[in-house]
Design a protein around this nucleic acid. Structure first.
Lengths: 208, 208, 208, 208
DNA sequence: TATGAATGAGACTTCATTCAT
DNA sequence: AATGAATGAAGTCTCATTCAT
């Protein structure tokens, strides 16, 4: 029987992850030492390894955590009655996320995870699955809209999903770099992209 | 007083950079040792330091090299008589670059540089300047198109440039990750985005 | 005040020692962690330290355990009426012990204890005392045989005891290493060594 | 082209091994840190790893070194005209080696290698091969003596070789433990063992 | 008594950089 | 200029031991 409850264990784990997030954001994965995380989190070296088998596992934990948020996005987008509204909601949610200063550290670590994904198979898997999840969400919305006659039938759902995800990623990069990204200026451009896919009927479902 | 000619020196330098590119692409910046580069390049450990003061300088050299390509893009885009054609040419050039398998290593290293830019001031400066260069190119084209009545006056050039650059970056990510990105499916979506900016007159300048 | 009986305590202690024997035999003293012993024994980390003050004490416990077996050997050997028969019985007992596959773990741990004895004073003391015990047994037999005119008076009991013990130790080594030691081939050689010590009268006491 | 000569490299390597021998003899393999060897040898941590890939390789180097000495023993033993003389020479050489105080560290490390051989495959291989070498030497002498009618034909060469090697090993143990081993007292016992193998003709070849 | 989570000192190894040749 | 052996600081991870529950 465990001496500490599952909740206590999870709290401790999160305490370490929170500290690691600060360190990773500030110094990068590779320039963060386990000693840094220990200092920032207040747990001991030994305890760190009671919760994560290797330093690498801490990095992977971040990549995996993000997956959950993407599941949530999907649920919100699909819950919209109108698929066009669902697409716009997705775009809106991404925008809100980008504006949220509290998530800056997470974004900075996320960008590093993108680079790590190039050579770390576990992170690659996590990133690619996340990409697939978001794309599936988008493609399902588009197919629903095509079935409803709101998006032109010749539109390729994959082309749209990949382009839209590219925009999302690219915006995260700019925000992570500290660029003064004016989302209210980009929004119309992105919505214009969606607009280009619509049939006359589709346009009617967008509120002025 | 140098005993070797400037040309010899440049050849040697490039030999090191070529080797480093292979290593960085394969293992990442941080998991590449100077010994790896030495092995791959055939120069000696000592010689490496005759050409680059630190390992970090090799990384920075890649970031700086990219700047030159961006200058070239600008020249091509601006040389088009019609600014709308210039925009489309820019998009086309990026697409061709993405399709070029020979540049895969460069793209993989580029993505790593994006992550490095978060904490390495020199790389950050280089990346941000590159971003500014491309954006300036796009914004100049848009402003010219607005002056010519081809793009609606209320369009915000910065919003467009940031969004377009975001798409470019996002596509690079997907290609770097090995995603089966079908550019011919994405092209129409991106061009649709441009199309949404145009006036009736602007549309006339696009060939069928 | 102990809340468990002495018998329960001894059972627990033995449970730990049995587990340690398996671990030590498999991985060696130094490559066995207390966690290994905990896993193998089923007791908890904390409990381990209720029975042994340090990991080292577990090692010492093995060395001490062996002493008891050596006492037993002495009793058997001395109980023989004829000292020559006693010597041969001693040799026979060692041979039987070596043939006993159940004692393999013990032998492997014993060999490690020999190495430990070089730098661990407690183990050194234990090993050296064990050596002295066996030698005393042998020397007493020889002296009795000399008094009875069975062994030549010029034979040095210490030379014999040291040589005989050396053979015993060396055989243990070979068996521990997994060598295919044919004891029935070695027996005659060792008995021949004893034979060389005997007087004509001594030889009469050996059965054909 | 290497910057240092093979001889210089070998000197350096030996310098490390000499230091390691002192440390291993004093503290044992497992209680010797690479820092200890560095301190004792005067080379730097980094240099240590220029000559030995791991700490374990240093240990293995000792085991391998011993093999060479055993080759030498073989050569000496076989060079004797009379195989009985060869056997006695072998015993004599071992005795002389045991008496040599300068080799005490080597013996102490050797005993540790015997224990290591139980779980380290490389050391096991080295030890077992050494054992086989010495045994082969002995068995060849015995077979030659049997062919010459000096040793009784029913004597099993393997039984003799294993027993004799066991005596050698056991004596090394006693000396390593610091026991006051009087070899001149043991010599007659061992020679008596050989004597027991001989035919009348064989006995003639031994000088008084 | 028994537990097992927590501790932190310390081990092995790597690697960017230097410098005598 | 070129070489490559040498350096030593620093990093990740382990593990014997403790102690609050």
């Amino acid at each position: 029987m465990p001496k500490i409850s599952e909740a206590q264990r999870e709290t401790r784990r999160q305490q370490i992850l929170d500290a690691a997030l600060v360190c990773f954001s500030r110094d990068g994965f590779h320039n963060t030492t386990t000693a840094d995380i220990v200092r920032e989190s207040g747990v001991s070296q030994g305890t760190l390894y009671l919760y994560f088998a290797t330093k690498d596992d801490i990095v992977v934990a971040f990549a995996d955590d993000r997956r959950q948020r993407e599941m949530f996005l999907d649920a919100v987008a699909q819950s919209e009655q109108d698929p066009i509204q669902g697409l716009l909601a997705l775009i809106e949610l991404h925008g809100m996320s980008l504006r949220d200063a509290k998530r800056l550290d997470g974004r900075r670590v996320g960008v590093q995870a993108w680079a790590e994904a190039l050579r770390n198979p576990r992170i690659h898997a996590s990133v690619v699955e996340g990409l697939a999840t978001v794309r599936a969400t988008i493609e399902r919305l588009i197919e629903r809209a095509q079935a409803a006659g709101q998006i032109r039938p010749e539109v390729d759902p994959e082309g749209v999903s990949r382009t839209l995800v590219a925009v999302f990623h690219g915006m995260v990069l700019q925000v992570a770099w500290g660029e003064p990204l004016d989302l209210s200026a980009c929004g119309p451009v992105i919505r214009g992209m969606i607009d280009g896919l619509l049939t006359a009927k589709g346009r009617q479902s967008i509120p002025a």
